[in-house]
Amino acid sequence: MLEGKFESASLMKRLVEAIKDSVKLCNFNCSQTKGITLQAIDDSRVLLISLKLDPGCFEGFRCDKNLVLGLDLESLSKVLKQGNNEDYLTLIAEDAPDNLLVVFEDPKKDRISEFSLKLMDIDSDVLSIEDMDHDCSITLPSSDFAKVARDMRTLSESLQILVTKDSVKFMASGPIGTGSVIIKAHTDLKDGKESIKIDLNKSVNVTFGAKYLNDIVKASTLAETVTIKLTNKIPALFEFKLQGGYLRYYLAPKFDE
């Protein structure tokens, strides 16, 4: 039996909203030691989502037997919208489940809502992702990155990112003209989360599809900062750290034909 209780429904609500436009059907893998993990690839095979929710992400977590919960994220989103952000959220499944039970309790315990969601058999590709060495790593406020990705998409369907020792330059060039945004490394002593950190082994010049970057920045509601790891000509890693877990996106680059 699986019983995972979140202190508040808002984490799961934000997670599903962040990924449901990229992937529709997902297998949630549940185990006592690893908690809940998920790997899903978008239909175009360009963007991969990797989620880890350690047992420590939960107020209570129990999973007697490893389980795979095949879920339609559109349906899960509909059910999660029925709960309030500050409700407790508990996910419950039997050992060979046909359904996932989703329970919301308001903190005053005078209202309990229960939903049963049908599970699906989902046959999906799983890719093995080894730890990669990257040419550079950038950590910046997730809202800053979201603004650049959204703004620059209005100019071009591609976003070029150039990283040097102390700055990151985002460039877009399209039918109406060109634009660039330069972000410089700095340390904010008052609020560390506002700092911009660049670790560089080698300068990087990579280009990504703006549409995918706009999907990725939907996760900026989950973490105040995002870490972007880039290497020339290989997929980039975008990581949003969660309390006791992470949401990672791997994005394949664009290149000159």
Binding site: R45, V46, Y250
Partner: peptide, 14 residues
């Protein structure tokens, strides 16, 4: 014109 790569060129199916 730029071409979009897929992840399948970089990662193997497990």
């Amino acid at each position: 014109k730029m071409k979009q790569a897929t992840l399948l060129s970089f990662f193997t199916r497990s």
